[in-house]
Amino acid sequence: MAVLQHTDLRKGVKIELDGQPFLIIDSDFVKPGKGQAFTRCRVKNYLNGNTIERTIKSNEKIDKADIESTTCQYLYADGEYFHFMDGTTYDQYRFTEENVGECVKWLAENIEYNVLFWNGRALSVEAPNHVELEITQCDPGVAGNTAQGATKPATLSTGAIVNVPLFVNENDWIRVDTRTGDYTERVKK
């Protein structure tokens, strides 16, 4: 397993702490006058999604987490597992609800997701930054309400609820930013 020095501990690096995989969200280097250096890291646990802070001394070595990712299409859910397929190799993988986590809100067929494996085990699923989904339920815009920036809730085919502008209607397709959960634009399908 690759071993990292404290200078390698930068945002986006994947590390193992207490035998669990973490993603570094943010890190900063602290060095008091004429003293030893430390790297303070905010890290997110891939297994439970919790974010914690850890401080690494300059003389400590940290294991790099062996995390691989591949692009997969979402196929279907069978009530217990979510099934994905690698469009190049046709290999199929199954993920639990815990593995899929927040991404479940954005799961739709034919969209490509980044699926992660840790030591060869299914770990998590990441949605692309933008997905295009159909609105399955939303109230019509109220006539005469022309206030700038007015929005209404809309339910998408995946069950996610997104605030949309009043001119957007049921059965429209919209583009959503999965990082913020915000409506981006209406798209033609």
Partner: peptide, 24 residues
């Protein structure tokens, strides 16, 4: 202050860490 180290600290390291994360 949210500081949790991987391994136990010597008393000198404790002072350095406190200086960097709490006092400064």
């Amino acid at each position: 202050a949210g500081v949790r180290t991987e391994s136990a600290c010597s008393s000198e390291e404790l002072i350095d860490l406190t200086l960097g994360a709490v006092v400064q």
